[in-house]
C-alpha cells in the first residue's frame, strides 16, 4: 500500500520535473516515449512491491547461451 503510494509519488515527481520542458518545446514523440517508459516503470514497481513472482531477469541469458557455454567448456575440459 505505502510502496505503491511511494511509486506514484516518485512518478509524479519525475513528471513534474521533466514534462513541462518537453511540452514547452513541443516534443510530441518524446513525450510518448517518456510516458511509455514511466508506464513500464510503474508496472515493474507495482509488481515488485506486491512481491509477485517474477522470473529472474537473467534467465533469458541462460536460455539463449546455455548450448554455447556447454560446448565451449566441453571443448576445453
Amino acid at each position: 500500500m505505502w510502496a505503491i503510494a511511494g511509486i506514484i509519488a516518485v512518478i509524479i515527481a519525475i513528471i513534474m520535473f521533466e514534462a513541462p520542458s518537453l511540452r514547452r518545446k513541443q516534443l510530441r514523440k518524446e513525450l510518448w516515449v517518456f510516458s511509455i517508459l514511466l508506464l513500464i516503470g510503474f508496472g515493474l514497481g507495482v509488481a515488485i512491491s506486491l512481491h509477485m513472482k517474477l522470473p529472474p531477469a537473467l534467465d533469458w541469458i541462460i536460455v539463449i547461451y546455455k548450448p554455447l557455454t556447454d560446448a565451449l567448456i566441453g571443448l576445453l575440459k
Partner: peptide
Amino acid sequence: FLTLPSGMILLLLSLMV
C-alpha cells in the same frame, strides 16, 4: 529526459536481476 524514467526501471531491474 529519458534518464529519470529509465533510471527508475534500472533500479527495479537491478532487484530483478
